[in-house]
Nucleic acid binder design. Structure first.
Length: 169
DNA sequence: ACCCCGATCGTA
DNA sequence: ACGATCGGGGTT
C-alpha cells in the first residue's frame, strides 16, 4: 500500500472529489474509508471561501495541491480539506464522510464529527499530506460507485451537484 | 473597534 | 427549529 502523491491531487477538483471515495484517510494511528466528499473550486463558486479572492485564510486554497486546509466553523467544529489543482487556482475537496477501519466500523457522517473523532484541528492546517507521517491518504484499489447531490449547509451554489456520496461503502 | 456570519451538530 | 461559540473579513 502506498499513499496518494501530489499528482493525484493536482487534477480537476471534481475528479479528485470522486476519486477520493474509497481511499483511506490516515491520521496518527487511525484509519478510515472516505465515503463522502465535496468540491469547492474556482473564483465563480459562491460557496467557496476563496470565491472573493486571496486572503490569509484562503491562501492555502490558492497554493500547491496535496496540502491540508483545515478551518474552524461555527466557533466549535473543524473541517478537513485537501487542496487540489495548480498554484493560483483556488480549490479543495472537503472530507464529509469516513468509515473507521476497526472492529467498531463507526461511520462518521459530517466534517465536524470526523475532525472531532480524529483530533484534527487548525494546527494541522498546511500539512503536506504527500510528506507527513501523521496525515495522509493511502491508496485503496477498489471500485466505488457514487451519486452526486448539491452540497450541504451552504446558502449559495446549491445548484452545483458537487457532493459525492459512495453507494457501496 | 465593531459587526456579521458561517462548507456544523446536538438538542428541543 | 434553534442555540452554541469564535475567528475571518469587511466596514467605520
Amino acid at each position: 500500500m502506498h499513499r496518494l502523491h501530489r499528482s493525484f491531487f493536482t487534477q480537476p477538483t471534481l475528479n479528485v472529489a470522486a476519486a477520493l471515495l474509497g481511499q483511506i484517510l490516515v491520521f496518527k494511528d487511525q484509519r478510515g474509508l472516505i465515503t463522502e466528499t465535496e468540491a469547492y473550486m474556482g473564483f465563480a463558486d459562491p460557496a467557496s471561501h476563496a470565491a472573493r479572492g486571496l486572503t490569509q485564510r484562503t491562501a492555502m486554497m490558492f497554493g500547491e495541491a496535496g496540502f491540508a486546509y483545515v478551518y474552524l466553523i461555527y466557533g466549535m467544529y473543524h473541517c478537513l480539506n485537501f487542496v487540489t489543482e495548480g498554484i493560483g487556482f483556488p480549490a479543495a475537496v472537503l472530507i464529509r464522510g469516513v468509515k473507521i477501519l476497526d472492529e467498531s466500523g463507526l461511520h462518521l457522517n459530517g466534517p465536524g464529527k470526523i475532525c472531532r473523532h480524529f483530533g484534527i484541528t487548525t494546527k494541522d492546517n498546511g500539512t503536506d499530506i504527500t510528506q507527513s507521517s501523521e496525515l495522509y491518504v493511502d491508496a485503496n484499489n477498489i471500485t466505488v460507485e457514487f451519486t452526486t447531490t448539491p452540497r450541504m449547509g451552504i446558502k449559495k451554489g446549491q445548484n452545483l451537484p458537487w457532493r459525492y456520496v459512495a453507494k457501496n461503502l
